[in-house]
C-alpha cells in the first residue's frame, strides 16, 4: 500500500517542483490532489482482482427485480443505469437492506436489497442531511476556485449538517486577507461560481484512503493535516474518507448526494469572520454561508428571499477555533476571566 504511494508522489514532485523545498500554489495543490485521487482510485480498482458476482434485489418502481452485479466494482448508480435515466438522475442515496444509507458512487460489497431514494421519499431525513453536507462540500470547492491565484485559500472544515440553522457553512482560512468584507458583487460572483459548478452535473466520487496517503494529499494545508490523524482514529478501519467534485478533493464522513446537478436554486449569502482565542493556532477564519434547494423544488421568490435573509445571519454552529466562546466578532476576555 505504502510503496506505490511514495513512488507516485515523489515522481509527481519531480515533475512539478525540482526544488527540495515544498511550496505549492493553490492551483497546483488542487491538481496534485486530484491526480493522486485518480491514481489511488485506479489502484484500488485494479486490486479488486478476480471479479465476483453479487445479487442485488432492487425494490421500487417500476418493479422489483434482481440485478447481478460485480462485487467491489458496481455501485448503486450502475444499478440505476439498468433501470431508467430517471433513476440515475433523481436518485440521491441508496438504502441497503432497509437500514444502511449508501453513496450512489460507492461500490457494493455484499448481496443486498437496494432501494433508491430521491428528495421526495416519505421520510427524507437522511437524504436532506446528505444534501446539506454536499452543499457545504461544493461551497468549499467553489470558494477555492473563485479567488485569484495571489490569494491563498486554505479550507478548514465544515460541521455536520444542521438544516434548521438555515444555512450550510464552510470555515475557510484566507491568510492573505486579514480583514475582508465581501461586497454584494463578490457574493454574486461566488454564487455564480457555485451555479456553474452545479450545472456541470459532476458526480461526487468517494474513496477511502489510508492515513499516510491522506496526509500526502493535503500536505500544503496545515489545518487538514492536523485533522487527519484524529479522523483516521475515529474511523473503525483507520481510513480517511475522501470525496471529489470536479477536481476538488475534500474530507468528509459522508454520505453525499449523487451528482451536483441535484443542487437546484442556490445562493452564497454571506461571509462572516470568526475570531480565535489566544490559545488557538489560527487567528481567524471566514465562515462562508449559503442556502440551497434541491432540483425540482418550486418555491416562490418571496419565500426564498426569506430563506436568504435568514441565511445572511451568522450561523450559530460551534466555531472550530473558539469552540467554547460566543460565535461573534469580538472575544469576551473579561467574561471568560470572570467565570474562571
Amino acid at each position: 500500500m505504502k510503496k506505490p504511494v511514495m513512488y507516485l508522489s515523489s515522481s509527481l514532485f519531480g515533475k512539478l517542483l525540482p526544488r527540495s523545498k515544498r511550496y505549492l500554489s493553490t492551483k497546483e495543490a488542487i491538481e496534485r490532489r486530484s491526480h493522486l485521487f485518480n491514481l489511488e482510485k485506479k489502484r484500488q480498482l485494479e486490486n479488486v482482482g478476480r471479479i465476483e458476482k453479487i445479487e442485488v434485489n432492487y425494490k421500487g418502481v417500476p418493479k422489483d427485480c434482481t440485478l447481478v452485479m460485480n462485487r467491489n466494482i458496481s455501485t448503486p448508480y450502475d444499478c440505476a443505469k439498468h433501470l431508467t435515466q430517471w433513476h440515475t438522475e433523481s436518485s440521491v442515496l441508496a438504502l441497503l437492506d432497509g437500514t444502511i444509507h449508501w453513496d450512489m458512487h460507492r461500490p457494493l460489497t455484499e448481496n443486498c436489497t437496494l432501494e433508491l431514494q430521491n428528495f421526495t421519499v416519505s421520510d427524507p431525513h437522511q437524504v436532506n442531511k446528505a444534501f446539506w453536507r454536499s452543499c457545504s462540500l461544493v461551497l468549499g470547492a467553489c470558494a477555492t476556485v473563485a479567488f485569484k491565484d495571489t490569494v491563498a485559500v486554505k479550507l478548514h472544515s465544515f460541521p455536520g449538517p444542521d438544516i434548521r440553522s438555515g444555512s450550510f457553512i464552510y470555515d475557510i482560512d484566507l491568510p492573505s486577507l486579514p480583514d475582508w468584507k465581501p461586497t454584494q458583487q463578490e457574493l454574486h460572483t461566488l454564487s455564480a461560481e457555485y451555479v456553474m459548478l452545479s450545472r456541470k452535473a459532476l458526480p461526487i466520487e468517494r474513496l477511502e484512503v489510508s492515513e499516510e496517503l491522506a496526509l500526502e494529499m493535503f500536505v500544503e494545508n496545515e489545518h487538514k493535516t492536523k485533522q487527519i490523524p484524529s479522523i483516521a482514529r475515529s474511523n473503525a478501519n483507520g481510513k480517511v474518507t475522501l470525496y471529489k467534485v470536479d477536481k476538488y478533493v475534500d474530507i468528509s464522513k459522508g454520505p453525499m448526494i449523487s451528482h451536483t446537478a441535484q443542487i437546484g436554486k442556490v445562493s452564497v449569502t454571506s461571509v462572516h469572520q470568526l475570531v480565535g482565542t489566544p490559545e488557538s493556532d489560527v487567528n481567524q477564519l471566514y465562515r462562508f454561508q449559503g442556502v440551497a434547494l434541491p432540483t425540482g423544488v418550486v418555491l416562490n421568490h418571496f419565500a426564498y428571499s426569506i430563506l436568504i435573509e435568514r441565511a445572511k445571519k451568522l450561523n450559530p454552529a460551534r466555531s472550530p477555533i473558539n469552540p467554547f466562546g460566543e460565535p461573534s466578532h469580538t472575544t469576551h476576555k473579561e467574561n471568560i476571566a470572570a467565570t474562571a
Partner: peptide
C-alpha cells in the same frame, strides 16, 4: 405537505 421536505424544514425554522 410533508413537513420533512427540505424546503418545509427551512421555512418552519425561519
Amino acid at each position: 405537505n410533508n413537513r420533512q421536505l427540505l424546503q418545509n424544514i427551512l421555512l418552519d425554522a425561519a
